[in-house]
Design a protein around this nucleic acid. Structure first.
Length: 419
RNA sequence: GUGGUCAUAGCUCAACAGGUAGAGCACCAGGUUGUGAUCCUGGCGGUUGGGGGUUCAAGUCCCCUUGGCCACCCCA
């Protein structure tokens, strides 16, 4: 019963998990940097208008924002997503296009937490501004796909769809509303219908299944350009041998999407929150934020959910931390301080015991640390300028007494033999 | 926001129909006066999430509250 604990939906990522966290970020950075993307770091806090001005009617911006007035009287919000912030940045700095950026960081949404859903959650993602080419859509989807592959995930399902041009989408929404009006929808879907008919397609309730199955299809409303754009995307994915399914009911959450949209689902995730990530085109978003008319596309992947999927697929088999050496300081003198510093200066990973604890206690620490060698500094060693080097592995041979001057080169030699 | 469910030691969990809280793991120490991982012995550790009520007596029953989990919703 601690006096304080993390606020609901927020948590500490402790060392055991943060290593995986770092690995995921590392893999992502490798994949996207190799494709010409540069990292962008934007503030956690933005003018609230960055998120509201785009006219999004979703819960994300209407009900779930951490919004408040700062001490200067500005209306601000913790970012609930990254895309709008990146577009704001584009409109502010007007970089030359194509502008290809990637990011990693936290977002905030005031939702009720459950498995795979937190109030502070991390995403990695990319955004590209200023390119209309459908082949870019292919590239962006391929990058996410490559990232999952590189992580070691095998059972990630890709679904894609196109919402058509804005006019196509508008006509479709109208037709959809008309259709659903005549159906016996669930109460919740009826409420959704008045806000955004598209999202009724997302309903998982059985009562709505029939109405959704008989609903008009977006593909019937595509203009020639939209149809061609989408066909190019599908052909490109085929060409790269990326498995995907066209899912006509995929609409994605945020309202600003146009044309290509896609989502990655964890096939193994036994959870309601199985969307690992998704994205799409949002031509028009930059303009809505006061910039020039600029096409855009991107995706965001949930770090927590991707890590859950990794867990389920057993991707991280062995990730225990390993030290090269652990210094056991029996005399509590300066020798151990020097030895530890020399280790680290030589680029070896080393820790040590403190508080003059018994040799036995410190050996236990050495064992627990996973160090390859224990370096014992006792009375004799301190007096003779030597260190006992003891291999910790079960069958790694006898310990040796080594002169301090030879310690580092001896260790480096021994470590090489271990690998 | 709605619904369900749960809350006991640092962790995982016990405690018959209300009788005054226990185990494993972890941690610490000793067995081994300079040596871990095994083994043995011992130790530390809890106002049973918080508050109120019923009762001679509440971890156990009732109410409120806080938090976790799961689902709806929403979405990553």
């Amino acid at each position: 019963m601690p006096a304080f604990q993390t606020s609901p939906g927020m948590r500490d990522i402790l060392p055991a998990d943060s290593a995986r966290w770092r690995r995921l970020n590392g893999v992502f950075a490798e994949v996207v940097e190799a494709a010409g993307y540069g990292q962008i770091i934007t503030p956690l806090l933005e003018d609230i208008g960055v998120f509201t001005r785009i006219g999004d009617a979703t819960d994300v911006v209407t009900k779930e924002m951490y919004a408040f007035e700062d001490l200067g009287g500005r209306q601000v919000a913790l970012r609930p997503e990254m895309t709008a912030a990146v577009c704001r940045s584009f409109a502010q700095h007007r970089p030359t296009v194509p502008w290809k950026v990637w990011y990693t960081g936290s977002n905030f949404r005031y939702e009720k937490p459950q498995r795979g859903r937190f109030r502070q959650f991390d995403q990695v993602g990319v955004e590209v501004l200023g390119v209309d080419d459908a082949n870019l859509d292919v590239e962006v989807i391929a990058l996410a796909s490559e990232f999952f592959q590189r992580l070691g995930l095998r059972r990630v399902k890709l679904i894609v769809n196109s919402l058509g041009e804005p006019e196509d989408r508008a006509r479709y929404v109208e037709a959809l509303a008309e259709h659903f009006e005549q159906c016996d929808l669930s109460e919740q879907s009826r409420a959704t219908l008045t806000k955004n008919p598209l999202r009724v397609l997302d309903s998982k309730r059985e009562q709505d299944a029939g109405a959704i199955a008989t609903a008009p299809k977006i593909s019937e409303f595509y203009s020639a350009e939209a149809a061609e754009h989408f066909a190019t995307v599908c052909a490109g994915l085929d060409r790269l041998a990326i498995d995907f399914e066209v899912e006509p009911t995929l609409v994605r959450g945020l309202d600003y999407y146009r044309r290509t949209i896609f989502e990655f689902q964890g096939a193994t995730l036994d959870s309601a929150q199985n969307a690992l990530g998704g994205g799409g085109r949002y031509d028009g978003l930059v303009e809505a934020l006061g910039g020039p008319a600029t096409p855009g596309i991107g995706f965001a992947l949930g770090v927590d959910r991707t890590l859950l999927a990794c867990e389920d697929e057993g991707v991280f088999a062995s990730d225990d931390r390993r030290l090269d050496a652990f210094v056991v300081d029996v005399v509590g003198g300066g020798a151990a301080v020097e030895v530890t510093a020399e280790l680290r200066a030589a680029g070896l990973a080393g820790d040590r015991g403190y508080d003059n604890r018994s040799m036995k206690a410190q050996m236990k620490l050495a064992n627990r640390s996973g160090a390859a060698f224990a370096l014992i500094v006792g009375e004799d060693e301190d007096a003779n300028n030597t260190v006992v080097v003891k291999p910790m592995a079960r069958d790694a041979g006898e310990q040796q007494t080594i002169p301090r001057t030879d310690l580092i080169s001896h260790l480096q030699h021994e470590l090489r033999n271990l690998r």
